[in-house]
Deep mutational scan, measured.
Amino acid sequence: TSSHKLRLYERDDYRGLMSELTDDCACVPELFRLPEIYSLHVLEGCWVLYEMPNYRGRQYLLRPGDYRRYHDWGGADAKVGSLRRVTDL
């Protein structure tokens, strides 16, 4: 099985509160109590970021690497509604 891990930060450049995720999350704002995510670091696996909860809205593919600001993943703003692991490519 492949492993997945990413870290979410409330501010750009990996500042502020950090939360780690290793499984799908249908509602990021509810789980982490963060209305917006300004940076993230994908440590393992690929993920799909959705701008709205319950895997809706615009989708962004996140490969392992650094995303210091939301425009690094192509986002128009810092809204992160849900995240899902990519298990098949």
Rank of each mutant, 00 (worst) to 15 (best):
S2I: 13
H4A: 02
L6T: 02
L8R: 01
Y9M: 00
Y9D: 00
E10H: 07
R11H: 13
D12A: 11
D13W: 05
D13T: 08
Y14P: 05
R15Q: 13
G16D: 07
G16C: 06
L17T: 14
L17P: 12
L17K: 14
S19T: 13
S19C: 08
E20A: 06
E20R: 01
L21S: 02
L21M: 08
D24A: 04
A26T: 10
A26M: 09
V28W: 02
E30L: 08
L31V: 13
L31K: 11
L31I: 10
F32V: 14
L34H: 15
L34S: 12
P35H: 07
E36Q: 15
Y38P: 15
S39F: 01
L43H: 01
L43S: 02
L43P: 00
E44I: 04
E44A: 13
G45V: 03
G45W: 01
G45Y: 03
G45H: 04
C46T: 13
V48E: 14
Y50F: 10
Y50N: 00
Y50V: 07
E51P: 02
E51K: 01
E51F: 00
M52G: 10
P53L: 01
N54I: 06
N54S: 05
N54C: 08
R58H: 15
Q59E: 09
Q59V: 02
Y60G: 05
Y60H: 07
L61K: 14
L61P: 12
L62P: 00
L62W: 06
G65Y: 07
G65T: 03
D66I: 14
Y67A: 05
R68N: 12
Y70H: 12
H71W: 11
H71A: 14
H71T: 11
D72H: 13
W73V: 05
G75K: 15
A76G: 10
D77Y: 07
A78M: 11
K79R: 13
K79A: 08
V80A: 04
V80T: 00
G81P: 02
L83S: 04
R84E: 07
R84V: 05
R85V: 07
R85T: 07
T87F: 11
D88P: 08
L89F: 15
L89I: 09
